[in-house]
């Protein structure tokens, strides 16, 4: 789980071009949107693409989005639960 969260932080920074943000600046349980990292709806789309590209996971139910993308830890937990075995 720790390795996955570390990878996710690097991938989020790269995908969203978060300038001046380092992986260690993002807390495992820090909210990603609004008051936390300050991401917005376009970033949410980028995160959906990130899950598909890197982990072959599609979020089919839009209502899952806020729960999945709450923090790096919730993303990692979702990936662990839903990742196809051959990914």
């Amino acid at each position: 789980m720790e390795k996955l969260m570390s990878d996710l932080k690097k991938q989020i920074i790269e995908q969203l071009n978060l300038q001046d943000v380092k992986p260690e600046d993002i807390g495992d349980d820090q909210p990603l949107f609004v008051e936390g990292l300050g991401l917005d709806s376009i970033d949410a789309l980028e995160l959906i693409v990130l899950l598909q590209q890197h982990y072959k996971i599609k979020i089919s139910n839009a209502e899952d989005g806020p729960k999945v993308f709450r923090s790096v830890r919730t993303m990692a937990e979702y990936i662990t639960t839903h990742q196809p075995s051959n990914a």
């Binding site: 995908q15 376009i42 789309l45 980028e46 693409v49 598909q52 590209q53």
Partner: peptide
């Protein structure tokens, strides 16, 4: 590169 799938929305927008 990605076979017309999983495209980043920012560049398109």
């Amino acid at each position: 590169e990605q076979g017309e799938e999983m495209l980043s929305p920012t560049a398109f927008i």
